[in-house]
Design a protein around this nucleic acid. Structure first.
Length: 569
RNA sequence: CGGGGCAUAGUAUAGUGGUAGUACAUACGCUUUGGGAGCGUAAUGUCUGGGUUCGAUUCCCGGUGCCCCGACCA
């Protein structure tokens, strides 16, 4: 490719307002162009990279017998109503309909812009495959997804429209699903290794969300621009996403006499921060108590140490509830007789269930709401002012500094960017679409499914986040837009010859044939980040050699054309 | 979803109730060629709808969009 012909060709101004390195470099070097928040055009340079990333993904999916298909971006609303009314529940779902009167006169239907394809692939599979002989099988596609994100961020790391590989597997049994699920982990590991981010990408246990009660597994790349917090158990290497991290609070120790409980008026003192300032005590001494309601309308109190937050998903598991939500102000008042803000774990009405987090355990002389409007109590002690509960639970959101309960070791905590995720869907979608197969004995059995995603555009962004220096991007050879960036300094004729020669050898080469100052050429070559830079100038021609430099090395070498060819082939 | 800010040339910005300026980029000419070159010339403009006004790019209201912080993110 001649750089004089490359679109757009010249450098963009350094984009202001872009905080993430990947957005800055990818925009400035002309890999992508921002159309609006979270929506990007992939430009020729970017497409060359993305195409290679997706080829690698494709090869690994084919290796586990995935068959590629291409499903539509639009789908009928009806499909999305079948699964627990996902049409109304998925808060990132877009719809599409005629944009003007004339268009709507022709066809006034409203469609869903797919944000994932379980709701399309399940009816497809159901139409085609229904004998036990047909299983297992897996379909995948690489496609544009649409998600109405509240806040797109960091360039292509999180967009409203992005490309994703999604694979769906279908099995006769849970065991079959499990087996394939493990195979998919290996395939994913291969993908990220080949993309050059394998060493910093960790399989991370995460919530299955609405999809499944089991854990799902995320592939998290350690990355400052990432949006997830990953907790790693150093002794075993197991990683947890913050949302599911088992957490034990570091003990809050205070060697002191047990004091008498004291009622303190603190009108308008609501919230942990107020309390800390007002009572002049450590935050660990305060107690955060919230009133929840489960799906049956039963109330319960949940309490954590003041420096923690409650993890509602953990709370659900502890009380075996489908879901919990915060009780409304009037409900709280009716239940414990005090306004929100003064709720505590002392003087709790008999009938109300209290779930205490283990961060409360072992404290002496602590604070709590008095369950009396405008009052708090201090110097509260288990055994003296309230019964010590039979059991403490883990219902808090983990934070940096927490310990892994099983071994007591401190977690290593880092920010991660989720480049892939895999879900054991089990029978969620097959039940919803009534997808069953006929087994050997003629009986109808439910199909087990899994879903497996890799965001290819996000992966491209994460790779740049990981592989760059102060001058620009450093692409791994496997996905670089070109292998060689040839630069001529005043000697275009000689360079043209070499360019044609290398092209004939099927080397991917970008030739900077522009008549501009060498400084620009060097700076731009560093920014674009091809693995090899070759320079032809009066100086090199004198030696009869080329100056060759690898992007990730400092030293230059002088090689003959043949030596260069040998090196890069 | 909550809070804050912004909208002027391709880009980044200045300024004004009456004629809109600068830089970079672009085009042309001359010079220049190993780490983001110099001089000269030229072309290019106020997001959208309404209101106030003799007159609005400027003031007011709505819309749209963008940015930042937080919540959310199967």
């Amino acid at each position: 490719m001649l750089q004089s012909k490359l679109f757009p060709g010249s450098l963009k101004e350094n984009p202001k307002d872009e905080k993430s390195v990947s957005a800055k470099y990818l925009i400035r070097a002309g890999f992508v162009d921002k159309v609006m928040a979270g929506v990007y055009t992939i430009l020729p340079l970017g497409w060359r990279v993305l195409d290679k990333i997706e080829d690698i993904i494709r090869e690994e999916m084919n290796a586990i017998d995935g068959q590629q298909v291409f499903m539509p971006a639009l789908s009928p609303q009806e499909n999305w109503r079948k699964t627990a009314d996902r049409l109304n529940k998925i808060d990132v779902l877009f719809e599409a309909r005629g944009a003007n009167d004339e268009s709507r006169r022709r066809n006034d239907a409203t469609y869903v812009l797919n944000c994932t394809h379980e709701d399309v692939v399940t009816p497809l599979a159901k139409k085609m495959r229904f004998s036990y002989k047909d299983f297992p099988f897996a379909l995948y596609q690489i496609q544009t997804k649409f998600r109405n994100e509240a806040r797109p961020k960091s360039g292509i790391l999180r967009g409203r429209e992005f490309r994703m590989k999604d694979l769906y597997s279908f099995h006769r049994s849970e065991a079959g699903l499990k087996k394939f699920y493990e195979k998919s982990k290996v395939a994913y590991t291969n993908v990220f290794n080949r993309l050059g981010i394998g060493e910093e990408t960790f399989i991370t246990l995460a919530s299955g969300g609405d999809f499944t009660k089991d854990f799902s597994h995320e592939f998290q790349t350690e990355c400052e621009a990432g949006e997830d917090l990953v907790f790693k158990v150093k002794s075993t290497g197991v990683c947890y996403n913050r949302e599911v991290t088992p957490s034990q609070a570091p003990e809050f120790k205070s060697e002191e006499e047990i004091k008498k409980m004291e009622l303190i008026e603190g009108k308008g003192i609501i919230g942990v921060k107020d309390l800390v300032d007002f009572l002049k005590i450590e935050i660990e001494r305060t107690t955060k108590t919230l009133v929840y309601k489960n799906e049956k309308g039963e109330f319960l109190l949940a309490a954590v140490r003041g420096d923690y937050e409650i993890n509602e998903e953990k709370l659900c598991k502890v009380v075996r509830a489908e879901r919990v939500e915060l009780a409304r102000a009037e409900e709280v008042k009716k239940l414990v007789g005090a306004e929100i803000g003064y709720i505590g774990i002392v003087n709790v009405p008999e009938k109300v269930k209290v779930i205490m987090d283990d961060s409360l355990k072992g404290r002496i002389n602590f604070e709590a709401g008095a369950n009396k409007t405008n009052y708090h109590v201090v110097n509260v002690n288990f055994g003296q002012d309230l019964e010590s509960p039979k059991e403490f639970f883990d219902i808090k959101i983990a934070k940096d500094g927490d310990l892994f309960p099983a071994t007591g070791e401190k977690y290593e905590v880092f920010k991660g960017a989720e480049v892939g995720n895999i879900f054991p869907l089990n029978t969620k979608f097959s039940e919803a679409f009534d997808y069953r197969f006929t087994d050997k004995d003629g009986s109808k059995k439910i199909v087990y499914m899994g879903s497996y995603g890799i965001g290819s555009t996000r992966a491209m962004g994460v790779i740049v986040e990981k592989l760059h220096d102060e001058r620009g991007i450093i692409w791994p050879e496997a996905i670089a837009p070109f292998k060689v960036h040839l630069i001529s300094i005043g000697k275009n004729e000689e360079a043209s010859k070499l360019y044609e020669k290398l092209q004939a050898e099927k080397i991917e080469i970008l030739f900077d044939d522009r008549d501009i100052s060498p400084g620009i050429k060097f700076a731009e070559a560093d920014l674009i980040g091809c693995p090899y830079r070759a320079v032809i100038s009066a100086k090199t021609l004198e030696k009869g050699k080329l100056e060759v430099k690898k992007r990730n090395e400092k030293e230059v070498e002088f090689l003959t054309e043949e030596e260069l060819l040998k090196r890069i082939k």
